[in-house]
């Protein structure tokens, strides 16, 4: 019965990146198993967005390797990106178009034609609770609805991995909780590996794993409970970063 274990949804190994002489990432490694919700926690400037840009191939170069659903991003970018859904920190939907038109456009970018896209659009909008907003212009949606529509967009091609970069920035408490619950549900029910980049400590407590990024380096990678048995992730973060500064 022994077989080759399925590849991790996302494998980042020894990734480094610099902007000129400023080293933004230094040998970062992390793994997101299929169906796991992994939180990437770091303060502003820690290197989270740089890592997201590398994992989505907006940047390339530097050392290390990134594998998405088993495909090497540098050697086989097409197959790797076909397995990836992304929600960027800045909103990426076209405000002039309706939710349906936006999703149809993104389906086309993944080679999904209009006929095949129609049922998928209905499916993912139902999943994110926006089934009744398909014909509405994006400019008429609330902040939380836009975020959910962005998640629907990222799901349209049924990715194996999702990367979300600070997806709750600018949302009210209720919308934040909804988006977080929705994404955790995707990992648990759909088997999608999720990497959730955030600077908000209260969003990481229930993650399956926590990656703590500080000044471009991984300070911790493991279950949040192992880092902070008392649930005080903030305290544990301050201790770890303090130790790193002293070193």
């Amino acid at each position: 019965m022994s077989g080759t274990p399925p590849p991790a949804a996302l494998e980042i190994a020894g990734v480094s990146h610099a902007f000129g002489t400023v080293r933004a990432l230094d040998g970062v490694s992390l793994t997101v198993p299929a169906g796991a919700f992994v939180a990437l926690l770091g303060v502003n400037g820690a290197g989270k967005s740089t890592l997201v840009n590398l994992a989505t191939r907006l940047y390339d170069g530097g050392g290390g390797s990134i594998r998405i659903a088993g495909h090497d991003l540098r050697r086989d970018p097409g197959a790797a990106l076909a397995s990836l859904g992304v929600v960027f920190q800045s909103r990426a939907l076209d405000a002039d178009l309706t939710v349906r038109q936006n999703l149809a456009y993104h389906a086309a970018l993944h080679g999904i034609g209009r006929r095949a896209a129609a049922p998928r659009i209905a499916e993912v909008l139902g999943l994110v609770g926006l089934a009744d907003r398909a014909g509405v212009s994006v400019s008429a949606l609330s902040g939380g609805q836009v975020r959910r529509a962005e998640i629907a967009r990222a799901l349209i091609h049924r990715p194996e991995v999702m990367i979300l970069d600070e997806p709750t920035v600018g949302l009210d408490v209720r919308s934040r909780a909804e988006v977080l619950a929705l994404t955790r549900g995707l990992a648990a029910r759909q088997g999608v590996g999720v990497l959730w980049a955030t600077h908000l400590f209260d969003e990481v407590g229930e993650a399956d794993a926590l990656v703590l990024l500080h000044r471009g380096r991984v300070l911790w990678h493991g279950p949040p409970a192992a880092l902070a048995p008392d649930g005080d992730v903030t305290g544990a973060f301050l201790r770890l970063t303090g130790a790193a500064e002293a070193a």
Partner: peptide, 9 residues
């Protein structure tokens, strides 16, 4: 960004 992360060249 959404255009550039499409799997097509």
């Amino acid at each position: 960004r959404t255009l550039l992360v499409s799997p097509l060249p």
